[in-house]
């Protein structure tokens, strides 16, 4: 009940604020919901190409919000967990897009060349790294932390959102102890099954969004 009152309030803000309100923090837009169409987006990759969600109809898409200087991201790259998931996604025919929403001059912000160097240096295997310094894609997905993970099925429906795994820590040793939510979800989707735990709690570093006032 309260939720709908708040929504109404937000909606009116949105209408009154016009285009400027598009950038209101997270809550200004309808929050993405598992089972509903995933927010559409288009963005520019570190390879200079443009990427649109609509281009991937018929394929499963995994979105990974990242910030290479965040210790939670570091845990999953230094352990090799993230790269393994990316290779696993590619082997399953899924499209893995890493998204960087850090604003300029903030932690994790990189230009195209540095993003490509990071991919190479870490032996990462995303299909593309999308640069989102204005936070438009991040806000649309209500991504809050790095890493924050989303999976979209071939029909464009959001089928997973949340954490990469179950243990909120920066310790490498916890990777093998955790329930691997994203790994499990990808396997279930590859097997043609519904995702057993479609919404989990994300953990990590706050995404360094551009202020929206």
């Amino acid at each position: 009940m309260t939720g709908s009152v708040l929504l109404t309030r937000r909606t009116s803000l949105f209408v009154l604020g016009g285009a400027g309100a598009l950038a209101l923090p997270g809550t200004a837009m309808a929050k993405p919901q598992v089972g509903s169409p995933a927010p559409t987006f288009s963005g520019v990759g570190s390879d200079g190409k443009s990427y649109k969600l609509a281009d991937y109809r018929g394929r499963t898409v995994v979105l990974e919000w990242t910030n290479h200087e965040c210790p939670y991201v570091g845990k999953h790259y230094r352990s090799g967990n993230m790269q393994a998931l990316q290779h696993d996604a590619a082997a399953k025919g899924f499209v893995w897009l890493s998204v960087i929403s850090s604003m300029p001059d903030s932690q994790g912000h990189v230009g195209a060349a540095e993003a490509n160097d990071l991919t190479k240096a870490r032996n990462a295997a995303p299909a593309a790294v999308i640069l989102d310094p204005d936070g438009v894609i991040g806000r649309a997905y209500d991504a809050r932390v790095t890493p924050h993970m989303f999976i979209i099925d071939p029909r464009g429906t959001l089928v997973y959102m949340g954490g990469i795994d179950s243990i909120r820590s920066t310790s490498l040793g916890d990777v093998t102890k955790a329930t691997p939510y994203v790994r499990d979800a990808m396997q279930q989707l590859a097997d043609g099954k519904p995702v057993a735990q479609p919404v989990t709690q994300a953990y990590g570093c706050t995404i360094k969004y551009k202020p929206t006032a």
């Binding site: 309260t2 939720g3 708040l6 809550t27 929050k31 919404v199 709690q201």
Partner: peptide, 24 residues
């Protein structure tokens, strides 16, 4: 946690409304 909490003082006492976590 990031959503605003609504304060309703129209009845007796107060009612604080909070949005659910994504993983309710």
């Amino acid at each position: 946690h990031s959503a605003p909490q609504s304060l309703d003082r129209s009845g007796s006492g107060i009612v604080l409304g909070m949005d659910a976590a994504p993983a309710m």
